[in-house]
């Protein structure tokens, strides 16, 4: 497990596989302890991603169709950093999300909310020289799920980041500030440390809010060596 030491205190960053409040973890979480691999086995670099495969329009989820999607237009801006605070440059970030009504463009999603013909919910971008990235999209809606009675997921955007090394590969979710559903979400709360959970919440940002056009949110992502980085003091 990934533990970090700050001010002499150990923090467990990542959620445990076996989290009973998250019902489907019961059938899928491993029951045996993880085996610690020799570092030379897992410290493999990802291949350099072909830049030509990501186009500027891939980061603009509001203009992938002839018409614009319905919803509250938002600009999500952030930086991708190593745990030492240094920017990670030229890294691929993939995002996917529900539409403004809380429906995914996926055959298995049977939530009775409308699909938006002008919204795919998928985007990608490469980080710039300062590790920066930006997406233009719409705010996703909350949606019900079957985890427990009257269960609702708070609005979120899924993020996938590779990192430089295999050990850094990260899939996570970005949430929105002041969402009343956060308190009740077993996935968000599976991260037991409050300070680590706060990393998952974007903050509203006037500087990137564009007058008359879109609200700005900032979401910085800090890569660790998930699954068990060394203790790092910072």
């Amino acid at each position: 497990m990934n533990r970090y030491q700050i001010g002499g205190v150990n923090y467990q960053i990542d959620p445990a596989y076996d989290t009973p409040e998250y019902r489907s973890s019961a059938q899928r979480a491993p029951t045996q302890p993880l085996v610690v691999a020799p570092s030379r086995l897992v410290e493999v670099s990802f291949p350099v991603f072909e830049e030509s495969k990501v186009l500027p329009r891939d980061a603009d989820l509001c203009h992938q169709f002839p018409q614009e999607p319905i919803g509250e237009r938002i600009r999500v801006t952030g930086r991708l950093l190593g745990s030492d605070g240094r920017p990670l440059v030229g890294q691929l970030i993939e995002i996917w999300q529900a539409n403004a009504a809380g429906r995914y463009r996926h055959a298995v999603d049977d939530h009775p909310a409308p699909l938006d013909p002008n919204f795919s919910g998928a985007g990608r971008v490469l980080t710039g020289p300062d590790g920066g990235f930006q997406f233009l999209t719409i705010k996703p809606g909350a949606y019900p799920w079957r985890n427990h009675p009257n269960a609702w997921r708070p609005a979120h955007i899924h993020f996938s980041i590779f990192g430089r090394l295999f050990t850094e590969r990260l899939v996570t979710q970005m949430f929105f500030p002041n969402d009343p559903l956060l308190e009740y979400d077993p996935i968000f709360n599976a991260v037991r440390e409050r300070r680590a959970r706060e990393r998952l919440i974007a903050r509203f940002d006037w500087d990137t809010t564009e007058e008359g056009y879109a609200l700005g949110y900032r979401f910085d992502i800090v890569m660790g060596g998930h699954l068990g980085s060394p203790l790092v003091a910072s």
């Binding site: 605070g85 996926h106 998928a122 979710q173 996935i187 300070r195």
Partner: peptide, 20 residues
């Protein structure tokens, strides 16, 4: 800096990740 924690990929990712 405290790293960003992992979260589940969820069930509905194919439209975002199949392109690769």
């Amino acid at each position: 800096m405290l790293p960003t924690p992992s979260q589940t990929v969820g069930p509905f990712f194919s439209f975002g990740l199949a392109w690769m």
